[in-house]
Computed example of a mutant assay.
Amino acid sequence: MVKVLLVDDDVDLTSLLSQYLMREGFDVNTVQDGEAGVAEAISNDYALVVLDIMMPRLSGIEALRRIRAASAVPVLMLTARGDNIDRIVGLDMGADDYVPKPCTPGELVARIRAILRRVEGRGSATTSAQRVLQVGDLSLWPGSRRATWRGAPLELTGTEFRLLEVLARHSGQLVSKQDISQQAFDRPLARFDRRIDVHISSIRQKLGTRPDGQSWIQSVRGLGYQLLED
Rank of each mutant, 00 (worst) to 15 (best):
F192L: 14
S201N: 15
V38F: 12
D45V: 04
D52V: 03
I42S: 05
A80Q: 08
Q173R: 08
R150N: 11
S18G: 13
E62V: 12
D137R: 09
R118C: 05
I67F: 04
L174T: 08
G106K: 06
F161I: 01
Q214W: 11
P74G: 06
V89M: 13
G158P: 10
Q183M: 14
D92G: 15
A63Y: 00
I200T: 08
K101H: 04
E120L: 04
H199Y: 11
Y46R: 00
S144R: 11
M1P: 15
S124W: 02
D8P: 13
S202Q: 12
S215F: 12
M22T: 09
G37P: 09
A63Q: 02
G106W: 01
I53A: 04
R195P: 04
A114W: 02
A184F: 05
E35S: 14
L174D: 08
I203F: 06
I200E: 01
I112P: 07
I53P: 05
S176A: 09
V4P: 06
P142S: 09
S144Y: 00
T209H: 10
P74A: 05
L207M: 12
Q183D: 15
N44D: 07
C103L: 14
D96T: 08
R191Y: 14
S43R: 12
W216F: 14
W141G: 06
Q173H: 10
K206C: 07
G208M: 06
W216I: 07
L207D: 07
